[in-house]
Amino acid sequence: MQIRKAAIADIKSIHGLLHRHSHEGDLIPRPLSNLYDHVRDFSVAVEEKGGRLIGCCALQFCWEDLGEICSLVVAPPHRNQGVAAAMVESCMAEARAFGMARLFSLTFKPGFFNRFGFIEIERSELPLKIWADCMLCVKFPDCEGIAMMKILA
């Protein structure tokens, strides 16, 4: 498996992966046009042989020192093989390279993010800007997602 930055040619595959898994209720669906707008935010996991896309993750900058890890999904046959962990590590390295001091994620799997040093915080500690995305979620306004933060310094 290889982690690399997404390319325009990956967008339809990313959209398909996010769309299929948004029905599970763990992801906010993203319109195709939004993915083209944010292609530079995405990294993808691809199989070594054949280069088939097996996972994706986005790192979005929210403020001068704050970023978000979002849209993390791995295709079911490739789960529990370290793909998601590799994508989170890649996002954290990229955030550090850009000088980010903090990263957050809204997740239904806090134990996964605990492994990387994220701690649970109150959602009210997050900037209001993120709630625009939350309004697209099928669970809004009854969100069960857990806000988690990691200090990168």
Results as ranks from 00 to 15, higher is better:
Arg20Ala: 15
Gly82Ser: 09
Asn34Gln: 13
Phe104Gly: 02
Leu32Cys: 05
Leu72Met: 12
Cys70Gln: 06
Glu48Asp: 13
Met135Ala: 11
Glu94Cys: 00
Asp142Lys: 15
Lys139Pro: 05
Gly117Tyr: 04
Leu72Val: 12
His23Pro: 05
Ala86Lys: 14
Ile130Val: 10
Asp142Cys: 04
Asp142Gly: 14
Pro76Phe: 09
Trp63Gln: 10
Met87Lys: 04
Ser22Cys: 05
Leu32Asp: 05
Met87Thr: 00
Ser43His: 07
Leu106Phe: 10
Ile28His: 01
Leu106Tyr: 04
Glu47Trp: 01
Ala85Lys: 14
Cys70Trp: 02
Met149Tyr: 07
Glu24Asp: 13
Ser90Tyr: 12
Gln60Phe: 06
Lys12Asp: 11
Asn80Lys: 15
Arg123Gly: 15
Asp37Gly: 02
Gly99Asp: 08
Ser71Asn: 15
Ala101Trp: 07
Pro76Ile: 01
Val73Tyr: 02
His23Val: 01
His15Asn: 11
Glu64Gly: 03
Gln81Arg: 12
Cys62Ile: 14
Ile14Phe: 05
Tyr36Thr: 06
Gly50Cys: 00
Glu24Pro: 00
Gly25Lys: 06
Trp131Leu: 09
Ile11Gly: 09
Phe116Gly: 04
Ala95Asn: 03
Phe42Gln: 04
Ile130Asp: 02
Val88His: 09
Lys129Tyr: 10
Cys91Thr: 01
Leu17Met: 09
Pro127Ser: 06
Arg115Leu: 09
Phe61Tyr: 11
Asp65Ala: 14
Ser33Ile: 03
Gly25Asp: 10
